[in-house]
Amino acid sequence: MKSVLRSGMALVTAAVLGAGIFAATNTIASPGSTAGSVAIAGQGNNGNGNGKGLGGQPTTADAVYLDGIKDYGVCRGVDPACYNDWGQGWTEGETKRILIYSRTVGPRHAHLGTALAPGLNPPLNPNNVAQAALKAWAEERGIQVDYTEDVSRMTSLNNYQAVVFLSPTRDTLDDNAQTALMQFVRRGGGFVGIHNAFGTEYHWPWYEGLLGGANFYDHAPNRAGTIETINDDDVSTAGFPATWDFRDEFYNLVPYPSYVNVLLEVDEATSLNGRATGHPGHGAEHPVSWCHYYDGGKAFLTTLGHDVQLWTGDPNGEIANEELFKQHIVNGLESVMGIQPFCQA
Protein backbone atom coordinates (compact mmCIF):
# COMPACT_ATOMS: atom_id res chain seq x y z
CA MET A 1 0.00 0.00 0.00
CA LYS A 2 1.29 3.44 -0.87
CA SER A 3 0.43 5.96 1.84
CA VAL A 4 1.23 9.02 -0.26
CA LEU A 5 -1.67 11.36 -1.08
CA ARG A 6 -1.51 14.25 -3.51
CA SER A 7 -1.51 17.93 -2.57
CA GLY A 8 -4.90 19.33 -1.62
CA MET A 9 -5.99 16.08 0.05
CA ALA A 10 -5.62 15.10 3.67
CA LEU A 11 -2.19 13.61 4.28
CA VAL A 12 -1.61 10.69 6.59
CA THR A 13 -1.28 12.20 10.04
CA ALA A 14 1.69 10.22 11.35
CA ALA A 15 3.19 6.82 10.85
CA VAL A 16 4.53 6.42 14.33
CA LEU A 17 3.28 8.21 17.41
CA GLY A 18 5.28 9.03 20.52
CA ALA A 19 4.47 8.02 24.06
CA GLY A 20 1.52 9.69 25.69
CA ILE A 21 -0.33 10.90 22.58
CA PHE A 22 -2.98 8.23 22.97
CA ALA A 23 -2.52 7.54 26.67
CA ALA A 24 -6.15 8.28 27.44
CA THR A 25 -7.71 5.64 25.20
CA ASN A 26 -4.80 3.67 23.72
CA THR A 27 -7.04 3.07 20.70
CA ILE A 28 -6.24 4.13 17.16
CA ALA A 29 -8.65 3.88 14.26
CA SER A 30 -7.44 1.66 11.47
CA PRO A 31 -6.96 3.27 8.03
CA GLY A 32 -10.01 1.50 6.67
CA SER A 33 -12.34 2.85 9.32
CA THR A 34 -14.50 5.96 9.11
CA ALA A 35 -12.88 7.52 12.18
CA GLY A 36 -10.00 9.97 11.88
CA SER A 37 -7.42 7.51 10.68
CA VAL A 38 -3.79 7.32 11.64
CA ALA A 39 -1.58 5.13 9.51
CA ILE A 40 0.60 2.69 11.43
CA ALA A 41 3.70 1.34 9.74
CA GLY A 42 4.46 -2.25 8.86
CA GLN A 43 4.35 -5.65 10.48
CA GLY A 44 8.00 -6.61 10.72
CA ASN A 45 10.05 -6.30 13.91
CA ASN A 46 13.43 -4.71 13.23
CA GLY A 47 14.54 -4.86 16.85
CA ASN A 48 13.39 -1.32 17.63
CA GLY A 49 9.96 -1.30 19.23
CA ASN A 50 7.21 -3.87 18.96
CA GLY A 51 7.19 -4.29 15.18
CA LYS A 52 3.82 -2.55 14.89
CA GLY A 53 5.10 0.88 13.94
CA LEU A 54 4.60 2.32 17.41
CA GLY A 55 8.19 2.43 18.66
CA GLY A 56 7.32 0.11 21.53
CA GLN A 57 4.03 1.76 22.51
CA PRO A 58 1.07 -0.58 23.10
CA THR A 59 -1.74 -0.76 20.58
CA THR A 60 -5.01 -2.53 19.89
CA ALA A 61 -5.39 -5.23 17.29
CA ASP A 62 -7.44 -3.12 14.89
CA ALA A 63 -4.71 -0.44 14.81
CA VAL A 64 -2.28 -2.72 12.99
CA TYR A 65 -2.59 -3.52 9.34
CA LEU A 66 -0.23 -5.33 7.03
CA ASP A 67 0.94 -2.68 4.59
CA GLY A 68 4.43 -4.04 4.07
CA ILE A 69 6.09 -0.83 5.29
CA LYS A 70 9.17 -1.20 7.43
CA ASP A 71 9.02 -0.21 11.09
CA TYR A 72 11.95 2.03 12.06
CA GLY A 73 10.90 2.16 15.69
CA VAL A 74 10.74 5.95 15.95
CA CYS A 75 8.13 8.68 15.71
CA ARG A 76 7.82 9.53 12.02
CA GLY A 77 5.31 11.12 9.70
CA VAL A 78 3.77 14.51 8.99
CA ASP A 79 2.39 15.23 12.47
CA PRO A 80 4.36 17.92 14.40
CA ALA A 81 3.83 15.76 17.50
CA CYS A 82 6.91 13.89 16.25
CA TYR A 83 9.09 17.00 16.65
CA ASN A 84 11.31 17.55 19.71
CA ASP A 85 11.67 21.25 20.42
CA TRP A 86 14.83 20.75 22.46
CA GLY A 87 16.78 23.80 21.37
CA GLN A 88 18.43 22.63 18.13
CA GLY A 89 16.21 24.62 15.78
CA TRP A 90 16.77 28.29 14.98
CA THR A 91 15.24 30.94 17.24
CA GLU A 92 14.91 34.68 16.61
CA GLY A 93 18.18 36.52 17.24
CA GLU A 94 20.30 33.40 16.93
CA THR A 95 23.02 32.99 14.29
CA LYS A 96 21.83 30.86 11.39
CA ARG A 97 24.36 28.09 10.71
CA ILE A 98 24.49 24.91 8.67
CA LEU A 99 27.04 22.21 7.94
CA ILE A 100 27.42 20.77 4.43
CA TYR A 101 28.85 17.25 4.32
CA SER A 102 29.95 15.72 1.00
CA ARG A 103 32.42 12.92 1.86
CA THR A 104 32.51 10.08 -0.66
CA VAL A 105 33.80 6.55 -0.08
CA GLY A 106 33.04 5.29 -3.54
CA PRO A 107 31.85 6.83 -6.82
CA ARG A 108 31.89 10.62 -6.77
CA HIS A 109 29.46 12.83 -8.65
CA ALA A 110 30.96 15.38 -11.01
CA HIS A 111 29.16 18.23 -9.25
CA LEU A 112 31.29 17.55 -6.15
CA GLY A 113 34.58 17.87 -8.00
CA THR A 114 37.91 16.95 -6.42
CA ALA A 115 37.83 15.55 -2.88
CA LEU A 116 38.26 18.23 -0.23
CA ALA A 117 41.25 18.43 2.08
CA PRO A 118 40.76 17.40 5.73
CA GLY A 119 39.38 19.80 8.29
CA LEU A 120 36.62 22.36 8.35
CA ASN A 121 36.21 24.80 5.45
CA PRO A 122 39.28 23.83 3.41
CA PRO A 123 39.94 25.80 0.20
CA LEU A 124 37.43 24.92 -2.49
CA ASN A 125 38.74 23.75 -5.83
CA PRO A 126 37.27 25.28 -9.01
CA ASN A 127 35.39 22.05 -9.70
CA ASN A 128 33.71 21.86 -6.26
CA VAL A 129 30.71 23.54 -7.85
CA ALA A 130 27.89 22.06 -5.76
CA GLN A 131 29.56 22.91 -2.46
CA ALA A 132 30.34 26.43 -3.65
CA ALA A 133 26.85 27.04 -5.03
CA LEU A 134 25.00 25.76 -1.98
CA LYS A 135 27.27 27.83 0.25
CA ALA A 136 26.56 30.95 -1.82
CA TRP A 137 22.80 30.32 -1.94
CA ALA A 138 22.64 29.95 1.85
CA GLU A 139 24.81 33.00 2.45
CA GLU A 140 22.43 35.06 0.30
CA ARG A 141 19.84 34.32 3.00
CA GLY A 142 22.15 35.33 5.85
CA ILE A 143 23.05 31.76 6.78
CA GLN A 144 26.60 31.01 7.90
CA VAL A 145 27.97 27.91 6.20
CA ASP A 146 30.60 25.41 7.24
CA TYR A 147 31.49 22.52 4.96
CA THR A 148 33.64 19.44 5.31
CA GLU A 149 34.47 15.97 4.04
CA ASP A 150 36.29 15.14 7.27
CA VAL A 151 34.24 12.55 9.16
CA SER A 152 35.80 13.59 12.47
CA ARG A 153 34.05 16.96 12.10
CA MET A 154 30.67 15.24 12.08
CA THR A 155 30.82 14.71 15.84
CA SER A 156 30.41 18.41 16.69
CA LEU A 157 26.97 19.45 15.49
CA ASN A 158 25.55 21.46 18.39
CA ASN A 159 26.09 24.87 16.75
CA TYR A 160 24.11 24.08 13.60
CA GLN A 161 20.39 24.15 12.89
CA ALA A 162 20.74 21.87 9.86
CA VAL A 163 23.11 19.31 8.41
CA VAL A 164 23.08 18.92 4.63
CA PHE A 165 24.18 15.65 3.04
CA LEU A 166 25.27 16.70 -0.45
CA SER A 167 25.78 13.55 -2.55
CA PRO A 168 27.97 11.54 -0.17
CA THR A 169 28.54 7.89 -1.06
CA ARG A 170 28.74 4.50 0.60
CA ASP A 171 29.75 4.19 4.29
CA THR A 172 30.57 7.85 4.75
CA LEU A 173 30.11 7.95 8.56
CA ASP A 174 31.90 6.07 11.32
CA ASP A 175 30.24 4.96 14.55
CA ASN A 176 30.94 8.23 16.36
CA ALA A 177 29.51 10.30 13.51
CA GLN A 178 26.42 8.12 13.29
CA THR A 179 25.75 8.61 16.99
CA ALA A 180 26.27 12.37 16.70
CA LEU A 181 23.86 12.63 13.78
CA MET A 182 21.18 10.68 15.64
CA GLN A 183 21.55 12.86 18.72
CA PHE A 184 21.42 16.00 16.57
CA VAL A 185 18.18 14.93 14.89
CA ARG A 186 16.62 13.82 18.17
CA ARG A 187 17.26 17.29 19.64
CA GLY A 188 15.13 18.78 16.86
CA GLY A 189 17.87 19.35 14.30
CA GLY A 190 17.16 19.71 10.59
CA PHE A 191 18.42 17.32 7.92
CA VAL A 192 18.57 17.99 4.19
CA GLY A 193 19.42 15.12 1.83
CA ILE A 194 20.29 16.05 -1.75
CA HIS A 195 20.66 13.62 -4.68
CA ASN A 196 23.16 10.94 -3.66
CA ALA A 197 22.29 11.30 0.00
CA PHE A 198 20.28 8.27 -1.15
CA GLY A 199 23.48 6.46 -2.13
CA THR A 200 25.08 6.32 1.28
CA GLU A 201 24.79 4.41 4.56
CA TYR A 202 22.89 1.58 2.89
CA HIS A 203 23.23 -0.72 5.89
CA TRP A 204 21.99 1.70 8.57
CA PRO A 205 18.21 1.29 9.06
CA TRP A 206 17.83 4.50 11.11
CA TYR A 207 19.28 6.52 8.22
CA GLU A 208 16.96 4.85 5.71
CA GLY A 209 14.08 5.96 7.91
CA LEU A 210 15.48 9.49 8.00
CA LEU A 211 15.29 9.48 4.19
CA GLY A 212 11.55 8.81 4.49
CA GLY A 213 11.75 5.05 4.63
CA ALA A 214 13.30 5.13 1.17
CA ASN A 215 16.56 4.05 -0.42
CA PHE A 216 18.33 4.20 -3.77
CA TYR A 217 17.86 1.23 -6.08
CA ASP A 218 18.96 2.38 -9.55
CA HIS A 219 18.58 5.08 -12.18
CA ALA A 220 18.58 5.48 -15.92
CA PRO A 221 20.99 7.93 -17.62
CA ASN A 222 20.67 11.65 -17.06
CA ARG A 223 17.68 12.65 -19.17
CA ALA A 224 14.83 15.09 -19.69
CA GLY A 225 11.60 14.68 -17.79
CA THR A 226 8.54 16.55 -16.62
CA ILE A 227 8.30 17.44 -12.93
CA GLU A 228 4.82 17.54 -11.41
CA THR A 229 4.22 19.86 -8.47
CA ILE A 230 2.21 17.72 -6.07
CA ASN A 231 2.03 20.17 -3.18
CA ASP A 232 2.43 23.90 -3.77
CA ASP A 233 1.43 24.82 -0.20
CA ASP A 234 4.91 24.15 1.13
CA VAL A 235 7.46 26.99 1.17
CA SER A 236 9.82 24.93 -1.00
CA THR A 237 7.27 24.71 -3.83
CA ALA A 238 5.25 27.90 -3.38
CA GLY A 239 4.39 29.45 -6.74
CA PHE A 240 5.68 26.49 -8.76
CA PRO A 241 3.86 25.65 -11.99
CA ALA A 242 1.80 22.47 -12.07
CA THR A 243 4.32 20.87 -14.43
CA TRP A 244 7.81 21.95 -15.53
CA ASP A 245 10.66 20.58 -17.58
CA PHE A 246 13.79 19.32 -15.87
CA ARG A 247 16.79 17.10 -16.54
CA ASP A 248 18.23 14.71 -14.00
CA GLU A 249 19.06 11.14 -13.03
CA PHE A 250 15.61 10.23 -11.81
CA TYR A 251 16.29 7.80 -9.01
CA ASN A 252 14.25 4.64 -8.53
CA LEU A 253 13.76 3.89 -4.86
CA VAL A 254 13.26 0.68 -2.90
CA PRO A 255 11.76 1.01 -0.37
CA TYR A 256 9.41 3.68 -1.68
CA PRO A 257 8.95 6.69 0.65
CA SER A 258 6.17 6.22 3.20
CA TYR A 259 4.26 8.51 5.57
CA VAL A 260 5.78 11.63 4.05
CA ASN A 261 4.49 14.84 2.48
CA VAL A 262 5.28 14.41 -1.21
CA LEU A 263 6.21 17.73 -2.81
CA LEU A 264 7.35 16.84 -6.34
CA GLU A 265 7.09 13.84 -8.62
CA VAL A 266 8.48 13.09 -12.05
CA ASP A 267 5.96 12.11 -14.71
CA GLU A 268 6.70 8.45 -15.35
CA ALA A 269 5.72 8.80 -19.00
CA THR A 270 8.60 11.20 -19.62
CA SER A 271 11.25 9.44 -17.56
CA LEU A 272 10.98 5.80 -18.61
CA ASN A 273 13.96 6.00 -20.95
CA GLY A 274 12.57 3.40 -23.32
CA ARG A 275 11.08 1.07 -20.71
CA ALA A 276 7.52 -0.01 -21.35
CA THR A 277 6.46 0.54 -17.74
CA GLY A 278 7.72 2.35 -14.68
CA HIS A 279 9.94 0.91 -12.02
CA PRO A 280 8.11 -1.65 -9.83
CA GLY A 281 9.14 0.28 -6.73
CA HIS A 282 6.99 3.22 -7.85
CA GLY A 283 4.18 2.34 -10.20
CA ALA A 284 2.30 5.40 -11.40
CA GLU A 285 3.75 7.70 -8.71
CA HIS A 286 7.43 8.62 -8.77
CA PRO A 287 8.30 11.11 -5.99
CA VAL A 288 11.49 13.12 -6.26
CA SER A 289 11.07 15.48 -3.25
CA TRP A 290 9.31 15.15 0.10
CA CYS A 291 9.49 16.16 3.77
CA HIS A 292 8.59 14.61 7.12
CA TYR A 293 9.28 14.59 10.85
CA TYR A 294 11.60 11.85 12.03
CA ASP A 295 12.77 10.81 15.49
CA GLY A 296 12.38 14.34 16.87
CA GLY A 297 13.83 16.21 13.90
CA LYS A 298 12.81 17.61 10.52
CA ALA A 299 13.93 16.20 7.17
CA PHE A 300 13.69 17.63 3.65
CA LEU A 301 14.71 15.23 0.89
CA THR A 302 15.21 15.43 -2.85
CA THR A 303 16.74 13.02 -5.32
CA LEU A 304 17.26 15.90 -7.77
CA GLY A 305 20.58 17.69 -8.26
CA HIS A 306 22.71 15.52 -10.54
CA ASP A 307 23.62 17.89 -13.35
CA VAL A 308 26.70 20.10 -12.90
CA GLN A 309 24.95 22.97 -14.65
CA LEU A 310 22.31 23.09 -11.94
CA TRP A 311 25.06 24.30 -9.64
CA THR A 312 27.10 26.46 -12.00
CA GLY A 313 24.26 28.30 -13.70
CA ASP A 314 23.14 27.69 -17.26
CA PRO A 315 23.61 30.79 -19.44
CA ASN A 316 23.13 28.75 -22.63
CA GLY A 317 19.72 27.50 -21.60
CA GLU A 318 20.63 23.83 -21.81
CA ILE A 319 18.83 23.02 -18.55
CA ALA A 320 15.33 24.27 -17.87
CA ASN A 321 14.18 25.64 -14.54
CA GLU A 322 17.42 25.62 -12.59
CA GLU A 323 16.08 28.63 -10.68
CA LEU A 324 13.14 26.54 -9.46
CA PHE A 325 15.64 23.96 -8.23
CA LYS A 326 17.57 26.63 -6.32
CA GLN A 327 14.37 28.01 -4.76
CA HIS A 328 13.29 24.49 -3.81
CA ILE A 329 16.58 23.71 -2.08
CA VAL A 330 17.05 26.98 -0.20
CA ASN A 331 13.48 27.27 1.05
CA GLY A 332 13.48 23.62 2.05
CA LEU A 333 16.71 24.24 3.95
CA GLU A 334 15.24 27.21 5.78
CA SER A 335 12.16 25.18 6.68
CA VAL A 336 14.11 22.44 8.46
CA MET A 337 16.16 25.08 10.27
CA GLY A 338 13.00 26.66 11.69
CA ILE A 339 13.30 29.93 9.76
CA GLN A 340 10.24 29.22 7.60
CA PRO A 341 7.21 26.96 8.20
CA PHE A 342 8.02 23.29 7.78
CA CYS A 343 6.37 20.67 5.59
CA GLN A 344 3.11 22.48 4.88
CA ALA A 345 0.22 20.56 3.40
Score class of each variant (00 low, 15 high):
62 D>I: 04
62 D>H: 12
63 A>F: 01
64 V>H: 14
66 L>M: 04
67 D>E: 10
67 D>Q: 05
69 I>D: 09
72 Y>R: 01
73 G>Y: 01
73 G>E: 05
74 V>R: 04
74 V>Q: 06
75 C>M: 09
75 C>D: 15
76 R>S: 15
77 G>S: 09
77 G>R: 00
78 V>C: 14
79 D>V: 09
79 D>Q: 03
80 P>F: 08
82 C>M: 06
82 C>N: 12
82 C>I: 02
83 Y>W: 14
87 G>M: 05
88 Q>L: 05
89 G>R: 13
89 G>D: 15
92 E>T: 14
93 G>Y: 14
93 G>S: 10
94 E>R: 08
94 E>N: 09
95 T>H: 07
95 T>L: 13
96 K>E: 02
97 R>Y: 14
98 I>N: 03
98 I>P: 00
98 I>S: 03
100 I>T: 02
100 I>H: 09
104 T>R: 08
106 G>L: 06
107 P>H: 14
108 R>Y: 11
110 A>G: 14
112 L>R: 10
113 G>C: 08
113 G>N: 05
115 A>F: 01
116 L>E: 01
116 L>D: 00
117 A>V: 02
117 A>D: 15
118 P>G: 07
119 G>H: 06
119 G>V: 00
121 N>C: 06
121 N>S: 02
122 P>C: 10
123 P>M: 06
123 P>G: 02
124 L>W: 00
124 L>H: 06
